[in-house]
């Protein structure tokens, strides 16, 4: 199975992945769509650049954990660990209780802050040809591969 592979050493903190994630999840697939509902309800990125204790930037993405705390915390059944290994949220079932946000030890389950009160997380761009963050990464930090190199986010957690 193809998974996202992250080579943390290559991250320069350009935030192209965050921007691409916002664009991919905005109405019309356009950046302008991110602000269609007003700036206080703007579309959020589902990925995040973090800075470690030494000031080095690194991408902090959903790991699609083997034992996902967000799924265990989900009282609506919206979050599911699928047979293909991905942890996916069904927005129609989510009621925005945010116990997933309370439970994800990596901070990768987030409130949408948009029009609907639901959680958002990395959906692995399942309805797109390629993961938007991977396609936008200019340094080779983010790649798609089969596996065992660097961090394979499907088997962590």
């Amino acid at each position: 199975m193809k998974t996202k592979i992250i080579d943390r050493s290559r991250c320069v903190g350009c935030k192209n992945c965050e921007l691409a994630c916002i664009v991919a999840h905005s109405p019309g697939g356009q950046l302008a769509g991110a602000y269609a509902a007003g700036i206080d309800k703007a579309v959020r990125a589902r990925t995040k650049l973090e800075v470690d204790g030494d000031g080095k930037r690194f991408p902090q993405f959903c790991r699609h954990c083997a034992h996902p705390a967000c799924v265990d915390a989900c009282m609506s059944g919206a979050l599911e660990k699928r047979a293909d290994g991905l942890v996916i949220c069904d927005p129609d079932r989510c009621v925005g209780c945010y116990m997933c946000v309370m439970s994800c030890p990596y901070g990768n389950a987030r409130p949408s802050m948009g029009e609907a009160q639901i959680m958002i997380k990395c959906d692995a761009c399942t309805d797109r040809a390629c993961m938007a963050c991977v396609a936008a990464c200019p340094t080779g930090c983010l790649k798609v591969g089969e596996g065992t190199e660097a961090v394979v986010y499907n088997v962590v957690g």
Binding site: A69, Y98, C100, V101, M102, S103, C104, P105, Y106, G107, A109, R110, P111
Partner: peptide, 10 residues
């Protein structure tokens, strides 16, 4: 603002 709540919890 509750983003990262789980990180504190951990």
């Amino acid at each position: 603002e509750i983003t990262n709540a789980g990180v504190y919890g951990e």
